[in-house]
Write a protein that binds this DNA or RNA. Structure first.
Length: 190
DNA sequence: GCCAACGTTGGC
DNA sequence: GCCAACGTTGGC
């Protein structure tokens, strides 16, 4: 999961009450689908810092709730307010995210490109902008083994980091919702 | 700050 | 349903 540390960093998460924060504000269908359909409590998350120099993985968090309707979608004062949300519900979902650990150093994107076993990560694809992305168990293990092995500095890199090509076609597209807005527990009890 | 790569919007 | 215009993301 990506966040601009200026907005919300892993240190912000660590110092939150219960070290937990609802991951609100996701307004992309594919990213929402990963949260809604692809996560369960206890799943580990790479906490990625974007839009800084250098960008990279800052540490680990974990999924700490089932998916639930994103409260900011109902809040007119929120920058994530979605006027299409209402008593019928909202299409936008979030999960609670809980702090696990901060890596001994930020693992930079450029270094991730060089990690054997990580080269197919969704994160490394050109134009990959999704704020919530899948990580395979294998990719996860390779990244973890790497940061454990090189907690202070990477081995000296030789040559430019490999740049994977964009996929010829997307594996699927999320598109606008074919489903109705999801029911919520707002208002009356269900 | 630039710009490529997307996703969304809305006219038709 | 097409597609141009527009807005956003995020590395560089």
């Amino acid at each position: 999961m990506k966040s601009e540390p200026e907005d919300f960093s892993i240190e912000d998460l660590r110092t939150r009450k219960n070290q937990t924060e609802p991951w609100t504000g996701v307004r992309n269908y594919q990213a929402r689908n990963y949260m809604r359909d692809g996560m369960k409590p206890g799943d580990l998350i790479f906490f990625y810092h974007s839009n800084i120099t250098p960008p990279g993985i800052a540490g680990l968090a974990e999924v700490a709730s089932e998916p639930f309707p994103d409260p900011t979608a109902f809040d007119p004062s929120s920058k994530y307010y979605d006027p299409k949300s209402g008593t019928h519900g909202t299409t936008w979902m979030c999960v609670d995210v809980k702090y696990v650990e901060t890596f001994p150093r930020l693992l930079p994107l450029d270094e991730i490109r060089r990690i054997p076993g990580a080269s197919a990560m969704a994160l490394l694809r050109p134009g990959s902008r999704l704020s919530v992305q899948p990580v395979t168990a294998r990719e996860f293990e390779h990244i973890m083994a790497w940061i454990r092995k090189y907690p202070e500095a990477p081995p000296s890199a030789k040559g430019p980091a490999p740049r994977p090509q964009a996929l010829p076609a997307r594996s699927f597209k999320a598109g606008p919702p074919k489903t109705k807005p999801l029911p919520t527990t707002r208002g009356k009890s269900q």
